[in-house]
Simulated scan of single mutants.
Amino acid sequence: MVNNTDLTICLFPKALSIPSGFVTLGICIGNVFVIVSVYSIRSLRKPCYIILASMALVDVLTGIFGFVAGLLFALHGRFFYFGDTVGWLLHKVMVSTIALSLLHHLLLAGDRYFAIMYPYMYIIKVHNRSVMLTLIATWTIVILGLIVILSPYYSKDVQNVLEYTFMILVSTQMYAFHLRIYCKAKKTAGQVSSSTCQAVQNNRSDFKAARITSIILGAFSICILPSLIHSIVIETQGECGRCRLPFYVCSMLAYANSMLNPIVYGISNKTFSDSYKKIFQKIFQKIIRLC
């Protein structure tokens, strides 16, 4: 029997049901497009984009869990229906997907950091196989962590301490990577813009990829930090603030982050944009044939 006494049952505002449905649909469709693009286009089969594809898979899972949460709400009229065993399990799984998403952002930042700061070592050490092994290890660690937090001996107090410590450490390292990249980009901007050397041109490509990851980090910060700060405030003030409007707004904002990443890829990268168009055309043609 699952102990759910530490979870609060919240009535979900009906006004957020339609926006939540659109966000869920956008998450699933957009991130499936990203995975298909990386798989089908040879030029996107690079370490950085493989990490993006893996992160897209995390976001697809987030969309599926969001759909299940919405279904539970439709059946029971409660947000995640935390009093139910399924809702309790769903809550734990979604916490794990947030942790997995954070680790992917850290991997992206680290990939761009080493590509720009140590380009020659990056070429030798970092390749598709090493990235795949790193991603497998990352997924394995999070799955093992999920097994631990599902244990009846894992208390809520320990969970809160570990969650906040993990988020602070990972976020600090991500911002440190991007700060170093920004300093390097500012220092070498004139050289990259004026030189035609092949090495410098390659460096320009790395900076372009770094710009995409920086935009992703910015969107992540805008969406996730309010939820993190609000969660810390709730822990200090008690559960009374958990079921109020700021709680739902912060939760929806954090959930919408998974929908923004494919949009960022399409705007910032022409290859992704062209791939999206081709996928849309194929789907449209199949729909016409069926009709």
Rank of each mutant, 00 (worst) to 15 (best):
7 L>F: 15
59 D>V: 08
59 D>T: 08
261 N>L: 05
211 R>H: 06
287 I>D: 03
14 K>E: 09
234 I>C: 06
195 S>H: 06
234 I>E: 00
87 G>W: 00
31 N>Q: 04
157 D>N: 09
27 I>W: 03
23 V>A: 07
89 L>Y: 13
12 F>L: 13
178 H>L: 15
183 C>D: 04
107 L>M: 04
164 Y>A: 07
135 L>N: 05
191 Q>F: 11
260 L>Q: 06
175 Y>L: 04
92 K>N: 09
110 G>M: 13
193 S>G: 05
288 I>F: 10
196 T>P: 04
53 A>M: 08
52 L>Q: 06
97 T>A: 07
147 I>C: 05
199 A>L: 14
167 M>F: 15
99 A>W: 05
35 I>F: 13
200 V>T: 10
100 L>I: 02
13 P>F: 01
211 R>Q: 05
122 Y>M: 02
240 C>K: 09
240 C>Q: 10
155 S>V: 02
13 P>G: 03
102 L>G: 07
7 L>S: 12
114 F>C: 00
201 Q>G: 09
224 I>V: 12
263 I>K: 01
75 L>I: 15
104 H>W: 06
64 I>H: 03
266 G>D: 03
32 V>R: 01
63 G>I: 05
29 I>A: 01
37 S>F: 09
163 E>G: 01
204 R>P: 13
45 R>S: 12
98 I>L: 10
44 L>C: 13
192 V>N: 14
227 S>F: 15
18 I>F: 12
280 F>N: 06
286 K>F: 13
45 R>H: 11
21 G>R: 12
39 Y>N: 09
74 A>Y: 06
124 I>R: 14
267 I>N: 02
227 S>K: 08
83 G>Q: 00
110 G>A: 12
54 S>L: 03
33 F>C: 10
193 S>M: 10
208 K>Q: 09
52 L>I: 05
